[in-house]
Design a binder for these strands. Structure first.
Lengths: 141, 141
DNA sequence: TTTATTAGTTAGTCAAACTAATTATCTGGG
DNA sequence: CCCAGATAATTAGTTTGACTAACTAATAAA
């Protein structure tokens, strides 16, 4: 039975989170695209086309930082930029077919990894983790 | 009732982990010491004095990277280095009193944050998170 | 219509990661 | 016993991603 006082729970969660993210990153590295770029690409894939400022805020970086990430993604052919017709200062950034393919391959790789670990858990344990995720989101609100 | 298939659980955990670490980092930033340095300091505090190679492995960085982190920590008076008597190639790195104080203050700040969130959970929810942490560690083995 | 604001980019800086090369020390096989 | 090779740490140099500040271009407001 694990300890349930705040500080112990927090430390355990902290360590576990670090480990988990490290494992996922190892798989994502295989795409050849860095984590910050992959993350931005993911936002564009699942959140749809958007302008630079919105994307920067979603990723919690400055517009200047995002500008560079996006221009690198564009050079790699993973996103396309187009000037916003309504406001010519703005750009509309969207994922290309190549970008989508890369994301899909990443998803497959991640799934392959999962079949080697999460699948080993029982249905009950998976449910436990799913509920814990919801609690963690509530915590960090 | 959250979904329990692998890919959904994994995505939920991934997002939750990112959020949680981001929240903790905001507090740790107040120490004025960067996350990588703070992490190394933590290993030294709880794992005791050790040589550079061991510390580098614990933090999963190259000895070259750790060498710089440690020399910065030394310049800040948070750790002390001493040549190993048994093997003069090696150094013994240990936390100073100042380093311990900083860690302790960090712990207090983190606790203060926790009293504003984890404490809001019920005893049962905390137990749930504690068990989930253990599962996450098993996942990432 | 002039002034202020907003969107994005560019330039320059910094920290932290890496690899490769260097220095100093240790160790084992002839 | 001693030298060749291994090992510990550091140093040099590069890359990436973060920042701020300064800039251009376009829009909004006075």
């Amino acid at each position: 039975m694990p300890r349930t006082d705040s500080i112990e729970v927090a430390n355990a969660l902290h360590r576990a989170s670090i480990r988990l993210l490290r494992m996922v990153r190892a798989v994502d590295d295989q795409t050849g695209v860095s984590a910050p770029k992959l993350s931005a690409l993911s936002v564009l894939t699942f959140g749809g086309p958007q302008n630079l400022k919105t994307l920067a805020r979603a990723e919690q970086v400055t517009p200047a930082t995002m500008s560079k990430l996006v221009s690198d993604l564009e050079a790699a052919g993973l996103v396309a930029k187009r000037i916003d017709r309504a406001d010519k200062r703005g750009v509309r950034i969207e994922v290309t077919a190549k970008g989508r393919t890369l994301m899909e391959e990443g998803r497959k790789r991640r799934l392959a990894l999962l079949n080697k670990c999460i699948a080993k858990l029982t249905r009950e344990e998976r449910a436990q983790l799913a509920e814990a995720s919801a609690l963690m989101m509530r915590l960090a609100e």
